[in-house]
Design a protein around this nucleic acid. Structure first.
Lengths: 256, 256
DNA sequence: TCAGTAAGTGTCAAATACACACTTAATAAA
DNA sequence: TTTATTAAGTGTGTATTTGACACTTACTGA
């Protein structure tokens, strides 16, 4: 029996890119203006950045490439979290322009490997040239209707983030190198969607050993200047089980 | 530009199927005897059960189909955990026979979505007719060299199991409906690779509410007969955050 | 100098973890 | 029938961690 390559699905990677600015968790989306012949107004459609996986490329490489083309950044936190492969996930799309741009039969099947990226949004210089589309940071509570099944992918990514941030010290990836305790707490409160006690939070963070205080403090703020801290990435990675748990056995507790 | 379907990769699902019997965590593998023209003896090569994803099938369906064809079981615990897509993962394989059996060019790319299944191995009636290959339960510390990159996939599955068993009450999926506290503890000790204190373990399990005692006890054992317990699946699923943590806030601790 | 703002700090009571050893109920062997 | 063997089953005390709670400090801008 001969092979039947024409039935093989396309495979892509999509990146759910989180950033944190102005006390808000944000999602990086690409926007396209799609001519609508009926209204003669451009429809705006948002999507997660992504691309087909190239022949000689492995999955992580592909996702990193998408991220680098979009943001200019390399070596940032990027982790695969789920693969989506419903046979109809693409055919449902309204975005025929995109389908053409990636040279696909509109009814072709596309299986996508979804990645979650956490970046310090200050570092991002959006690359207008590389992706022809515009890119925008959208607050996570204002995410519009997205192309394909991207809303579902985003929602799963957010759940995954919420879970992982409680087990691993990944929140720091969303902050600048130097950050204040207030920023850190605000980040955790945003992701976990609940208030945390300031004193208990500080105690836990300091005792965990994953951050170190600097002598440097804020300047120019109209209140008591906050001390800056840095994340001890090496320490955290070499003590994976004792991050937020001070117990001897690999257990942990969250902040109250 | 026209589409280039011939370059699309194949997509498969592979199942890492765990069972627990005789105090040992085991892996279900399929075995094939491959004629070796040089030695005139059959080579034996093991692999994870898997298959190409069919055109009209979504990923979960595909994995469930593989599992059902192999074990005759439906509705069992099965969860996607990672997708593997190195361009060379298949070309590395020694198992040309398999490549032919799935009608593939030996150098074709296959991206595989890996699933982890937990089953009560007592329930399994291995279906000799469905998969032409033999199936075997192999203790996890005696897993041989596997086809393709299946050793890597298995190792990642084991890590994922170890992590998840600490966060969710999934260990029960590996036990019969009725089980003793000793079996349960032994299961956890095996997965976590450390000893647990009997009294503290019992207390935590009982207090968590995820298991209920029966009046029924063991018969025919040459020691004090153990009480049987059942897993409250409904309870556990409706109280997802309070499984092993008796705290008020969604945190948990493991057994010491 | 006063008002406003966010940073920074300590303690106590309640909950949980963790360590630890003997008795019980069955079978098997003597 | 007695004895040995095996795994089940049970409770307490100490140490650690959590979680609740309010005032002072340092700075800017008016």
């Amino acid at each position: 029996m001969s092979s039947t390559p024409s039935l093989n699905p396309h495979v892509s990677t999509d990146c759910v890119i989180f950033g944190f600015s102005q006390e808000t968790l944000r999602l990086l989306l690409i926007r396209r203006n799609i001519p609508n012949r009926l209204t003669e107004v451009n429809d705006v459609l948002y999507a997660l950045p992504g691309d087909l996986v190239k022949d000689d490329e492995n999955l992580d490489t592909s996702a990193n490439r998408v991220l680098a083309e979009l943001t200019g950044l390399k070596g940032i936190y990027l982790t695969q979290f789920q693969t989506f492969g419903d046979p109809l996930r693409i055919a449902k799309s309204k975005d025929r322009a995109w389908l053409e741009s990636v040279r696909q039969d509109p009814d072709a099947r596309v299986i996508t490997v979804a990645y979650m990226a956490l970046i310090d949004s200050q570092k991002v210089n959006l690359q207008p040239g590389s992706f022809s589309e515009e890119t925008v940071w959208v607050p996570i509570h204002e995410v519009p209707e997205l192309a394909f099944d991207h809303n579902e992918i985003y929602e799963q990514a957010l759940s995954a983030l919420k879970e992982r941030v409680q087990m691993q010290p990944i929140g720091f990836e969303l902050l600048p190198e130097k950050f204040t305790m207030g920023q850190l707490q605000s980040l955790y409160e945003t992701i976990l969607e609940r208030d945390l006690d300031k004193r208990n939070f500080r105690r836990k963070m300091i005792n965990s050993g994953v951050i170190s205080p600097l002598t440097e403090k804020q300047i120019g703020v109209s209140n008591k200047p906050a001390r800056y801290y840095v994340y001890n990435r090496e320490f955290a990675q070499s003590n994976p089980s004792s991050i937020f748990n001070l117990r001897m056995d690999g257990s942990f507790t969250l902040f109250n």
